[in-house]
Design a protein around this nucleic acid. Structure first.
Length: 304
DNA sequence: AACAGGTCCAACCGCCTACGC
DNA sequence: CGCGTAGGCGGTTGGACCTGT
């Protein structure tokens, strides 16, 4: 056994001079060209045949997370963030499963997003990120805000709601248009007494019990996104800001109108009327959530 | 300019499962 | 059934980069 840097290597690793750490352009090129000619799979053999001094695992990871042509780069869109939040509330840390529903995004990227942004957010709010409270808080506050942001991005000069229909295709695939103004998120200014905080609002959300079919007066976001655990095909999820998922054949019937008249989505009335007695962030001012939505990423709490 | 602390993400690690023998 | 191997997954880490002082 010998030591290189902080890590110990066994003799076979040293003998075969396996490389570790960042990939060089030359290595990337070797891998890309080899896969272009011979395809993916049999990674250990591939590594040897391609002349790479890397483990098969390392090659696979490099290809899947970085080199594959359809990998999307750059910040996650609000739509993608929204979908991650929803899917995580549904499936937990099943990153690869979640990634299947975000074409071009890798499980690693989603995992990193969750750990660096979402968990950080939860820490700052003193909520366990996997807890029901946090999920409820996400559904009550951040999902509506993301939806609003999506709407703003979609039609920056208008406050009109996006059009929303759902088309069930022949193959069991459906496109779901999201009508942000159609969510009956409990209005904080009316449904909750003053001086109640973020957590209480989350509790309020969690106390809403709904049947599978949304009623005009009550609807939870998760009911909108009944996504098949076994997609029949990789969907183009966010084309033209329209959700498009393969869904189970027997779900959804009435989705184009949730009767959300009177919904109070005004962030000021929803948030500013509250202080947050349980959290330190109340000292940051009442515009914290607005500030957090000012960036392209939801979880920018620098303003706090 | 220099430094410290924080953030982000590519890459690695260990564990698990599937599969072939 | 037991064993070895490959591939896949989620968790963790190292270091480059960014930001504030």
């Amino acid at each position: 056994m010998s030591t290189i840097g902080k890590r110990e290597f066994n003799s076979s690793e040293v003998e075969s001079e396996l490389r570790r750490g960042p990939w060089t352009l030359e290595e990337d090129s070797l891998l890309i060209h080899y896969i272009a000619r011979h395809g993916e799979g049999r990674w250990n053999m591939l590594a040897k045949s391609a002349g790479l001094k890397r483990t098969g695992k390392s090659c696979r990871l490099r290809w899947l997370n970085y080199l594959k042509p359809d990998i999307k780069r750059g910040n996650l869109t609000p739509q993608e963030q929204l979908l991650i939040l929803e899917l995580h509330s549904k499936w937990g840390n099943r990153w690869s499963k979640i990634a299947q529903h975000l074409p071009g995004r890798t499980d690693n990227e989603i995992k990193n997003y969750w750990r660096t942004r979402v968990q950080k957010q939860a820490r700052q709010l003193n909520i366990e990120s996997g807890s029901k409270r946090f999920i409820d808080a996400v559904k009550c506050f951040w999902m509506p805000r993301l939806l609003e942001k999506m709407e703003q991005n979609n039609s920056p000069s208008s406050h009109s709601s996006m059009s929303h229909t759902m088309n069930l295709g022949n193959s069991g695939e459906a496109s779901i248009n999201v009508m942000s103004s159609s969510f009956n998120i409990p209005s904080m200014s009316s449904a909750s007494p003053p001086q109640r905080g973020f957590i209480d609002a989350a509790d309020h959300c969690s106390n809403m019990s709904h049947p599978i079919n949304p009623s005009p007066d009550s609807f939870q976001f998760s009911q909108l996104l009944e996504i098949s655990e076994h997609p029949k095909s990789l969907p183009n999820v966010f084309e033209n800001n329209v959700y498009s998922y393969p869904i189970q054949d027997n779900c959804y019937a009435e989705t184009n109108n949730y009767g959300m008249e009177g919904l109070n989505m005004d962030p000021l009335s929803a948030v500013e009327t509250y202080d947050f007695p349980q959290f330190d962030f109340q000292t940051a001012g009442s515009g914290w959530m607005l500030d957090s939505m000012g960036d392209t990423t939801l979880w920018n709490m620098d303003a706090m």
